[in-house]
Design a protein around this nucleic acid. Structure first.
Lengths: 139, 139
DNA sequence: ATTTGTGCAAATCGTTTGCATCTGA
DNA sequence: TCAGATGCAAACGATTTGCACAAAT
């Protein structure tokens, strides 16, 4: 199963014109082995080191950007200090817990958006992002 | 009319417990004199300097944060490395033009959101942000 | 052998902070 | 007067980049 995932990632990397290097495969494993994830570069770097794959921070940055260009993951626009990467590329939206900087998926089926506006001339809609910001309930 | 705006801003500043200093009034004028705006700190700073009010960058940062706390403006979480401030605090959403880092208001009436999901236990919804990302149409 | 990726450290960029000086009430 | 505001420069954290070395084809 780990093997299976590894092969799949190698294939996906090749398909994207990326050499399946040790580091990229390891990062890909960490990203995709556990279902949908929302990670910062820092977090993934720590996981990689903890998993015995001592990649450098710079490589994690490079790799995540390459994965993003390849469409394997996407960037989340929740808050501006840190960049979050989402391993789920399908159409879905997010909760963001303020103060805790935590991102959660919103189950797809719940949310609908109606009356999408016409984009300005010469523009088309690339993506619609909904972020529901949460705060702890007063008590 | 400029006078009127200035008085209003002084009043709003006082109401928020902020001394209406030369710099805050000038920045407030720039922010609110031209209708709804989406600005970065850098942009506002340049405008101020161009308008003959040589505030420091640090003061622009401080001031925008204080205005935000006072509820006069709000922070936009589009994506990008920079923080955008919105002078329109009412409930509305945004277009974001990719590559150009430009923010536009979506006219309120057009967009509806249905079936808002239940927030997780102990949480409540603070705010719902919709960002429609635009790209230039292929030709 | 050639091309591409990696690691490190230095560089960059947006933002924040410490502290001495100034200003509004 | 004097708490609060400002300006500067230094500090900071996230991200990027340049370049020598290593790995993949």
């Amino acid at each position: 199963m780990a093997e299976e995932a590894e092969i799949a990632i190698e294939t996906r990397l090749r398909g994207a014109g990326l050499r399946p290097t040790r580091q990229r495969i390891a990062l890909g494993d960490l990203l995709f082995a556990k279902g949908d994830r929302h990670l910062t570069v820092e977090e993934l770097h720590e996981e990689a080191v903890a998993a015995g794959v001592p990649v450098s921070l710079a490589t994690v940055y490079n790799t995540l950007h390459q994965f993003t260009e390849a469409g394997l993951i996407r960037v989340l626009a929740v808050e501006s200090t840190k960049t979050y990467f989402d391993t789920n590329v399908s159409d879905h939206h997010h909760f963001f817990i303020e103060g805790q900087n935590e991102v959660l998926d919103i189950p797809i089926s719940n949310l609908t958006i109606g009356n999408l506006p016409e984009p300005p001339k010469g523009m088309e809609i690339a993506h619609v992002d909904v972020v529901i910001r949460l705060r702890r309930t007063q008590r």
